[in-house]
Amino acid sequence: MPKEFKVGCKVPDMPSKEQPIVKNEEKVVERKEDNMIKVGKPAPSFTAPAYYQGKFVSIDLEEYRGKWVLLCFYPGDFTFV
């Protein structure tokens, strides 16, 4: 029988079965250094698809040079907080 799960602000934990986790040791080490965001240092650049005022657009952080940017990440649409 399907079990009901509690809704929250993240993807619900599923009962764990043996899940093959693909690990790439080299990649993990590389990422650790990439992850260090520091104040006073350049923000990592990116391009991403977005929804903006009725249209689907492509947003490139570099195009925001000359403006102040408040970049806010959040767990997901239709979550509660």
């Binding site: 993807v11 923000a43 952080l61 570099e62 925001y64 040079r65 408040l70 806010c72 990440f73 767990p75």
Partner: peptide, 17 residues
Amino acid sequence: GGVETRGRFIIDPDGIV
């Protein structure tokens, strides 16, 4: 969790955090 946590970054006009 497969989601972003609530990170908020202020980036200045030169692209500096």
